[in-house]
Amino acid sequence: MTFARAQLDGPSLLAHVRQWAHELGFSQIGVAGIDLSAAEDGLLQWLSRGFHGEMGYMAAHGLRRARPAELVPGTVSVLTARMDYLPASTPPGWQAVEWDRLCRPHEGVVSLYARGRDYHKVLRGRLQKLAERIAGEVGPFGHRVFTDSAPVLEAELAARSGQGWRGKHTLVIDREAGSLFFLGEIYLDLPLPPTAAATGHCGSCTACMDLCPTGAIVAPGQLDARRCISYLTIEHPGSIAPELRPLMGNRIYGCDDCQLACPWNKFARRSPLPDFEPRGPLVGQTLTILLGWSEQEFLAHTEGSPIRRIGHLRWLRNVAVAAGNALRRQDDAVLRAALARLREHESAMVREHVAWALEQRPPAPQGAAGAPAAPGA
Rank of each mutant, 00 (worst) to 15 (best):
E295W: 12
F276A: 04
E303H: 11
E295V: 09
G284I: 13
I310W: 08
C258Y: 02
C262D: 04
T288S: 09
V321W: 00
R317C: 04
T286H: 15
V283A: 14
F267P: 02
A322D: 02
P306Y: 00
T288L: 07
C258P: 02
R328A: 14
F276H: 09
E297R: 13
G311Y: 07
L260E: 02
W293I: 01
N265E: 07
C262I: 03
A320N: 02
V283R: 15
L282G: 03
L327V: 05
A320F: 01
D275L: 11
L316V: 08
G311A: 09
P272V: 13
V283L: 14
V319M: 02
R328E: 04
A300L: 11
R269A: 10
R309N: 11
Q285C: 14
L260W: 01
R328C: 09
S305Y: 00
R328T: 10
G284D: 02
G292P: 09
C258H: 03
L290K: 14
N265V: 03
H312E: 05
T286L: 13
P272L: 05
L299W: 05
T286F: 12
A320M: 09
R328S: 14
Q285I: 10
L299G: 07
D257A: 09
L273R: 06
R279Q: 14
L260F: 02
P278N: 06
D257F: 05
G284H: 03
A323W: 01
Q259C: 12
R329A: 15
W264V: 00
R270A: 15
S294P: 08
G292S: 07
I289Y: 05
A326M: 08
L327P: 01
P272R: 07
Q285G: 15
D275N: 15
A300R: 05
V283P: 14
K266V: 13
G284F: 01
P263F: 04
F298Y: 03
I289D: 15
N318C: 03
A261E: 05
R279C: 03
L291V: 05
R314F: 09
W264G: 00
R309D: 10
G304Q: 04
G292E: 07
D257G: 05
T302V: 13
G284T: 04
T286K: 13
L327Q: 01
N325W: 06
E295N: 11
P272E: 08
P272G: 11
L287C: 09
R279N: 12
S305R: 00
I289S: 14
E277Q: 13
F267Y: 06
R309L: 06
V319W: 02
A320C: 10
P278E: 03
R270K: 15
I307M: 15
W293F: 04
L273S: 03
N265F: 07
G280Y: 13
T286N: 14
G304P: 02
A320T: 01
T302E: 07
G324T: 06
K266F: 10
S294H: 13
E277Y: 12
R309T: 12
I307K: 09
H312M: 08
F267Q: 15
V321E: 00
S271H: 11
G284R: 05
P278Q: 01
L273W: 05
I310D: 10
N325D: 08
K266E: 15
S271A: 12
A326V: 07
